[in-house]
Amino acid sequence: MSFARWLALSALLALPATARGQDARLTERLDAATASQVQQAVDSAKGAGLPSEPLVQKALEGATLGASDDRIVAAVQSLHGQLRRARQALGGDASDAELTAAAGALRAGLEPSALRRLQSLRPDQPLVVPIAVLTDLVAEGVPPAEATRSVLDLARDGRPDDEFVALRRQAQRRGAGGEPVGRPALRPAADPPVDQ
């Protein structure tokens, strides 16, 4: 190799991954092809003004939990779509945290219209906690329609964040007994909470 080429190559390799446009965490933890695909989704999100860090975290989650490359890429792309739909529902004003929470809500099967309604009922305060509680209620087994109703009622009455959190604690207690450690986390919303 000529000296000039060696110099160029060394310079390139000496650059941190971030300077080459890649998130170092991805290249360190995923194989090259997967890292590249995830990076594409990350760059696309950035270009569209969507939060990109949740996508990186989703990939790292998959890596740590031992998921296959296909599943990792699928999960990242799926989240990208959910973030985009979250922004369609909430508009350009929504913060990254709100968009991320909203993406989770959509993933849990809640309707974009519920999110828009929530936003219209609570225009002055951040929506992260109400959206998070809405998602958590469904995750605890509360039927989406009922969860939506409860959360919107609180929003309509102008209740503060603590009361949304209290709502969630109530649901947790109703469904308490919980799951034995080690079982898969996803509980279908169709199952009614078990009263104990």
């Binding site: 508009g91 004003d93 936003q119 219209s120 009922l121 225009p123 002055d124």
Partner: peptide, 9 residues
Amino acid sequence: VRRRLQRSR
């Protein structure tokens, strides 16, 4: 105004 009137967006 935008922050205040988000509902009528």
